[in-house]
Amino acid sequence: MPDNLYYLIVVGMLGVFLLIALMIMLQVRNQNKLLYQQQKMTEAEIAHQKDLLQSVITSQESERQRIGADLHDEVGSVLSSLRLLIEKHAQTRTENDDPSFTSQSKSLIDRVITNVRQISHNLSPRISGSYGFFDAIHELADTVNQSGSIRLKLDFDENIAELPIQENTAMAVYRVLAELINNTIKHARAENINISVSVMNDKMDMTYTDDGIGFPADRHQAGRGMGMQNIESRLNMIKADWQFPQKNAKGFAMKIAVPLK
């Protein structure tokens, strides 16, 4: 009995169909696997970049502290000794000596000591514990308010003084606030800055607002700035969460939640 060609055609069609379907499934699996590997590699690359940036920030911070301490301890003490020496020399001066020399020298040395102390403090603000942190923030606010061009208002919770804040956390938050203030002064054309801090359940909630021109409509455009990258890196380092609320409202706003433990 001869073969039924119809039957062979149907079987042939189904066989090829299954073969192609299998090829498609393999292709799907292969491509998705490839995509997964690419995503993993990209994530690893981003994590590496973040680690690098955090290392840079950490080493920059320790270097600032070292230079600040050296300026304060070494240069400051040498200048104080020089001032004492000039005072001592003034007591033994003769009639031929110029009396204004001593006062002018002391005045200049005092100015240099003040400047060195200021530079040292800017490089490495003395932050240890909650008191030191809030003192540093108050000092920052005073410096901004003294400029007269912008008004910075602080709003702190009374309970904050009782909470211990780790030094690295305090330093990171201080630097973030300093960067935000710097951004407002440089770009926002604002008249007022408001910083409010509250503490609840081992978490410090901080809200920074200004009444300037606000955040760019394109979030990524702002994200590309080095300043914002530094802010995000510092907040990542202390495992803080942040968001930019009221996107369409006037001015800039940032909410930061810092874990204290």
Binding site: I20, A21, I24, Q27, V28, Q31, L35
Partner: peptide
Amino acid sequence: VRMRWTDNPVNWVISGLLLYFASALF
């Protein structure tokens, strides 16, 4: 690879063409 296989419209079209023309060749 820029996207998942199933998210690429061209993959669906080419699969349809391959399934039809290869199977119907007989």
